[in-house]
Amino acid sequence: MTDNSESSASMLRSGLSLGLLALLATALLSLVYWWTQPRIAEQERRQLLLQLEQVLPAERFNNGMHEDYIDVSSQLAFPGGQQVRIFRARQDGMPTAAVFRLVVPDGYNGRIKLLIGILASGQISGVRVLDHHETPGLGDKIEIQRSDWILSFNGKSLVNPEKPGWTVKRDGGEFDQFTGATITPRAVIRAVRRTLEYFEGNRQAIFDRPTEFQPQADAPESEDV
């Protein structure tokens, strides 16, 4: 009997000490979260703006482009059931360009995250790879840090080149492939072309829809791009 009550007392003590520790840890984490959150949000905003300015020169817009976006989905243009975020660039209220943030589902080694800037004229202002898992040394030449290939999209549009030119040279197109890696550039070229077609078909709607940005939402952006 005494044994029993002793052991339950010790169990209670163990449980309480763990509970107290958990409480302390939670309090500490909340404090640190509250302290770092504004700075993290600021860093993420800065990061996003830097990325956007890589595909669209800063002098092309004067709205808060990173806060002027809509989310769309289209199985035809953006396969894989993804939500594509479109940032709208405006100069004194007039639409000047749209920047698409999308995922190419059919890379050689999984998903490739792309940022594609398209001017209102339908010309590409820039394309950048945000994230990918392509083979280092072969498929990773899609990165701007590794090669200039991604710049070959600059100035291209649906009519420059015409549709047959929108593939790698090996398939009779206008874009270079990489030695040892054709699948990666093919996938990227296809995705850019599809995005251009989507832009052409939905231009009005893309710029007219109200922004989905909610300033009071203080939760950090969940998508880790």
């Binding site: 000490s17 763990l18 520790l21 958990a22 840890a25 500490l28 984490l29 640190v32 979260y33 770092t36 700075r39 993290i40 860093q43 993420e44 800065r46 990061q47």
Partner: peptide
């Protein structure tokens, strides 16, 4: 379990701080 709690809390604090100050 107490060690796990302590370690997880510590790492999360460091993660948040790195995210805020050395974001890249």
């Amino acid at each position: 379990p107490a060690y796990v709690l302590i370690i997880a809390a510590t790492v999360t604090v460091i993660e948040l701080i790195m995210k805020a100050w050395t974001h890249d």
